[in-house]
């Protein structure tokens, strides 16, 4: 559907050019690429067995050449656990955010564009979901469906959808009021094309920032649920559960808190930086 009018000057190339100029966004991108690289090639970096093999004699060893991040209270290599933990954390963060973006974004766009009874129904449903504290809601879902990774994803996604619907709906309402939407209607543009080519591109800014921020929040809330035993089950390493296990040894082995903590911080930071950069790069008004 892309016009060939743009061949010499493709919009994606233009977006990349603007993105490159933003130093903090590029730092975020490099960071994100490193984290993604680690997550994807975790098995090549260090085999999974190392992350779950318990060696009784190696408990709570400080960082050394053999164990760069030390070992935990069961004598497992902590570096291997953090590396493999990235898979769980990123999977949870990205998949829940993307799923809630797709479901919430479409619901929100239709509610905002059409309004009326459908809008009212959906929004009241969202109000009901929002009136339940998110942790409680996730707990209830996990308790009802059973504690495993898939149910954890469902639980977190459900508690995230209402805020996405609300955000997208409000942005869409403000854009649907613009003259250029009316202009588009005047030359017979279909509703679907209006939502796709007129409303969503102009709503991108807040939605992208919200999504990248929510990836960070999702990682944290998954960590929280794992912390109370309702999420990823041991011995699977996940950054949140690593933190919660390490908490008991905070004074004996503080390094056990540093590594997963820094990993969570870095991934959250990189998503936020990339999100900010993307928002700016996608807005032609902030050109040059």
């Amino acid at each position: 559907m892309k016009l060939k009018l743009l061949r010499d000057n493709h919009p994606l190339r233009e977006i990349w050019r603007r993105f490159k100029k933003n130093h903090s966004a590029m730092i975020g991108l490099y960071l994100l690429l490193i984290i993604l690289f680690v997550a994807i090639f975790a098995d090549l970096i260090v085999p999974y067995e190392k992350a779950i093999k318990q060696v009784g004699t190696d408990r709570l060893l400080s960082p050394s050449m053999a164990h760069p991040f030390g070992t935990d209270h069961l004598g497992r290599d902590f570096a291997a656990r953090v590396v493999h933990g990235s898979r769980y954390s990123l999977l949870i963060g990205i998949s829940t955010s993307v799923i809630s973006l797709i479901i919430g974004g479409l619901l929100g766009a239709f509610c905002g564009y059409y309004g009326g009874r459908f809008d009212n129904l959906v929004m009241r449903l969202m109000d009901v979901i929002m009136s339940i504290p998110p942790v409680l809601l996730s707990l209830a879902v996990v308790a009802a469906l059973g504690a495993n990774l898939r149910n954890l994803l469902i639980a977190i996604t459900i508690s995230c959808i209402p805020s996405t619907v609300r955000l997208v709906r409000s942005v869409v309402i403000s854009i649907a009021d613009q003259d250029y939407i009316e202009a588009a209607q005047s030359y017979n543009t279909s509703d679907f094309r209006i939502i796709l080519k007129y409303i969503l591109p102009n709503a991108m800014g807040p939605i992208i920032v919200n999504t990248t921020m929510s990836i960070a929040v999702m990682i944290l809330s998954a960590a929280g649920l794992s912390f109370i035993g309702m999420g990823v089950q041991p011995p699977s390493p996940e950054w949140g559960s690593l933190l919660s296990e390490a908490r008991q040894y905070m004074f004996k082995a503080p390094y056990l808190l540093y590594f997963p903590g820094v990993a969570i911080l870095m991934s959250a930071l990189s998503f936020n930086l990339v999100g900010d950069g993307l928002r700016d790069a996608l807005d032609p008004k902030l050109k040059n």
Partner: peptide, 11 residues
């Protein structure tokens, strides 16, 4: 206000 800000003149 009546021109989509995300489109070029040609589009």
């Amino acid at each position: 206000a009546s021109l989509n800000p995300r489109m070029t003149v040609k589009e």
